[in-house]
Design a protein around this nucleic acid. Structure first.
Lengths: 221, 221
DNA sequence: CGTATTTAGTCCAGATTGGAAGGATTAGGC
DNA sequence: GCCTAATCCTTCCAATCTGGACTAAATACG
């Protein structure tokens, strides 16, 4: 997994050099930044190379072409997100569904701010049909929803989350965190909110929890 | 107001011809469609002209340049939205704040689906700083928020809307409607939701109301 | 030290860009 | 029904950018 060199299949030869994986990292960082602000079509390989301070034909060398680079970038974004998620969820007791949901939301919000590309890429690709969107949905988005869906329904049954179509609810929560982030610049201009401020980020997380998980766990006995 | 011909200032001459305003309309429609899916930079004037089935130099003639065309498009989007809003609010009794808020949300959702560009344009422009974003915020977004803000605080005081920073709440509501719409293609792929279905749109509106306006009006006496 | 891997440097053929210029056409006012 | 301003069509351009191919130099690994 991870970053794979796309050059000729020389699996028997020497091992990958250090500087190679370094430039790959630089290219991925740059690609994520560029793609998430300008979209796939709006980004040129030259722009990416420039951001990475690397000569642009190296993209071809390391990633075969622009499309593969995009996919590698998306993979990294979601891999990192999944790691965050797994780590956070491991710290919460299995038996308390509300606490788990809260931890999920806090992690989601926190990670989103640290890695805005997570949402921006999705938004960019959602604006028109493409193979990339199909791939994104099939590879990353659908599995994520599948993982969360069951828990969400359970929260609704317990009266913790508001009733209604769970898919709608899931997406409302998602955009409340990620969509707001994507609108960061606009929100900053329109109201007095500035998500550079850690306190305001925390406030958003708590607000989402308060709004979407208003109920309490029924008393045990 | 409205569409203004940007050609040489011949205010004393004849009046605007019918076919002129027709092509302007066609260009505006096409511009809105193009800009909202591909963003300002990702859209070429030729693309717009092609969609409008009009020769591309006519853009220069009617709107001076690409930037002015974008502004005219944005103006039309928001003008139409405001008209929808005013019309809907006129039908709700002034004294019932919850009913007014519900009507606002229903109108917002309904209009968003009929005119997806309203949100897509904002999202497109929010992804990086630009004069266009500044203009959008100052001209349309900030006034809208200023109009709503007071009412929202009142709803919170009445216990109808959840407590917390009203600006955050406002934006959460906004993206729950518009952001979901912008993600339409993705949501369709990920879950079983299809916003082409009127019933699912209504369900979204009701869900937003249920979630963001959970409280009831205190009994009068 | 040799060799496979990685990088630098060049080049390309084509497409696209926003916009200018000038002649043809149409419609509105008289 | 004409005359003229308003509108439209056609053509052109110069600049820039596109993704990617190709070769030679440089570098690090074994």
């Amino acid at each position: 997994m991870g970053v794979e060199r796309a050059a000729a299949g020389t699996s028997a030869g020497r091992k990958q050099q250090q500087r190679s994986i370094l430039t790959q990292q630089k290219l991925l960082d740059a690609a994520i930044a560029a793609f998430s602000t300008n979209g796939f079509m709006g980004t040129s390989t030259r722009d990416i190379a420039e951001r990475a301070r690397v000569h642009h034909p190296l993209i071809t060398y390391h990633f075969k072409n622009k499309g593969e680079l995009w996919r590698a970038a998306a993979n990294r974004i979601f891999r990192e997100f999944n790691i965050s998620l797994v780590k956070a969820m491991a710290e919460v007791p299995e038996i308390d569904p509300k606490a788990r949901a809260e931890a999920f939301i806090r992690t989601y919000v926190k990670h989103s701010f640290g890695h805005p590309a997570l949402h921006k890429i999705i938004l960019q690709e959602s604006s028109y049909p493409s193979d990339r969107l199909d791939w994104l949905v099939a590879t990353h988005l659908k599995p994520l929803y599948a993982m969360v869906s069951g828990h969400l329904v359970k929260l609704q049954e317990l009266g913790i989350a508001p009733p209604g179509n769970p898919a709608l609810l899931y997406n409302m929560i998602r955009v409340s965190a990620g969509g707001l982030l994507a609108l960061g610049l606009e929100v900053k201009g329109t109201s007095n909110i500035n998500f550079d401020d850690q306190a305001q980020r925390d406030e958003l997380a708590e607000m989402i929890i308060r709004t979407f998980l208003p109920g309490n766990l029924p008393a045990q006995h």
